[in-house]
Design a protein around this nucleic acid. Structure first.
Length: 360
RNA sequence: UGUUCGAUGGUGUAAAGGUAGCACCACAGAUUUUGAUUCUGUUAGUCCAGGUUCGAAUCCUGGUCGGACAA
């Protein structure tokens, strides 16, 4: 353990800061890195204080590194972030799907670019402030939930490869969030404790992805424009503003009053139609996923029992896997609400991540 | 043109002379390292002009608009 070099991703927030401290206390040779993914100033959104990548946070991360006496680097990954995370984010919406950029960012940026950077600095490991754990067992690196189930972030990490995991340390995996706060307070890091937690998509100010799409594709409304809301039996119910502005399961913002709640059931990109239906019509226990990444086992078998999660902060539900060639059919024991194409389905065996995929 | 029914927040509907309520939409806040969901709260209405009555969304008269039937 001593003499090993670790590159820790510092966001300027409480979690990664404490993670860095813990590593240092354990005797690692710690180097900090903060990366720039998006330039708020050029986008005119410099007021944004939240998120992991504002200019503000880079400064705070740097100050913190100085304070605890570790080297700190800033990586400018804006171009790569743009080409991968953002372009996929936009193209998914233009296909009527609902992307999860955080999953992509982890795979591409944190465990892509940052790991390369770690090589340059001859670091043995990279570390983040995620609430998740890794262990080596039966020749596999196994990702599992953080001890603090309420903060567990393993869902966002299902895309990590064995190679990625072999070089990963999650210093907070055995901690509960409340204890992290107490630790920070004890160490006099009051500012960190009070800081608001990051949430929302880091590159989207005002929590409005619709505006962001317009900025990215200025002629989106000319290209796509309004279309019909239709009922599940095909009746025209009204007009919508263009299918990319909607997401499966959405209820608010439809601008259509039908006497009872209506949800987006399906997005038909080809005909620019949005199908609306009741809550019950959005319940289903079947889904298919592709882009499979397996973690705990190198293979999954027909009829394998797992616990399924189709969104962060959802209870896991017992389910059965039916692997096909490149995809996996999943049947859940209970109906799931609003299975959204483009989102991540992650399956667990107790606390271990068996694998995951993208919902078709 | 005649007869008739109707008109209540943005939408759909309750209130049969006594505080205009509900659902949906919209907005705001809470929750949330994705999109959503969920929770809490807020805004907002009796078609117009008269009349009866202590008191009118409600009863009467006229008008305006809409639907149906008749021609």
């Amino acid at each position: 353990m001593p003499n090993k070099k670790v590159l820790i991703c510092l966001s300027g927030g409480i979690d990664s800061s404490l993670a860095a401290l813990f590593l240092k206390e354990e005797g690692y040779n710690v180097i900090g890195v903060t990366f720039r993914t998006w330039d708020y100033i050029s986008e005119g959104c410099w007021e944004k204080q939240k998120g992991c990548c504002s200019i503000d946070s880079i400064m705070e991360a740097k100050q913190f590194a100085e304070k605890i006496g570790i080297q700190h680097h800033v990586l400018d990954l804006r171009e790569h972030f743009n080409k991968t995370v953002i372009s996929e984010f936009v193209s998914e919406y233009l296909n009527g799907r609902t992307p999860n950029p955080c999953v992509r960012c982890n795979a591409e940026i944190k465990w892509g670019e940052v790991l390369d950077f770690a090589d340059k600095l001859e670091c043995d490991f990279i570390a983040t402030g995620h609430y998740a754990q890794v262990r080596f067992e039966n020749e596999r690196y196994v990702l599992s939930k953080g001890i603090d189930e309420t903060k567990d972030q393993s869902y966002f990490l299902w895309m990590l490869t064995q190679e990625n995991l072999s070089r990963t340390i999650f210093p907070l995996g055995k901690w509960k969030k409340n204890d992290i706060k107490k630790q920070a307070a004890q160490k006099g890091l009051v500012k960190l404790v009070e800081k608001r937690e990051s949430q929302e998509i880091c590159f989207i100010p005002k929590n409005n992805y619709r505006e962001f799409l317009k900025e990215q594709i200025p002629d989106i409304d000319q290209k796509i424009g309004s279309g019909n809301f239709i009922s599940t039996d095909g009746k025209i119910l009204g007009q919508h503003k263009g299918f990319p502005y909607y997401t499966v399961g959405q209820r608010k913002g439809l601008g259509i009053a039908l006497g009872e709640p209506r949800f987006v059931v399906e997005i038909r990109a080809k005909s620019n139609e949005i199908v609306l239906g009741s809550y019950d019509e959005l319940l289903s226990n079947k889904l298919t996923i592709s882009n499979i990444n397996l973690i705990k086992y190198s293979q999954i078998s027909e009829n394998q029992k797992v616990q399924l999660k189709i969104r962060y902060k959802a209870a896991t539900i017992d389910a059965t896997l039916f692997p096909k060639n490149k995809s996996v059919n999943i049947i859940a024991n209970e109906p799931l609400f609003a299975i959204a194409p483009g989102q991540s389905a992650v399956f667990y065996e107790n606390n271990d991540v068996v694998g995951g995929g993208i919902i078709l």
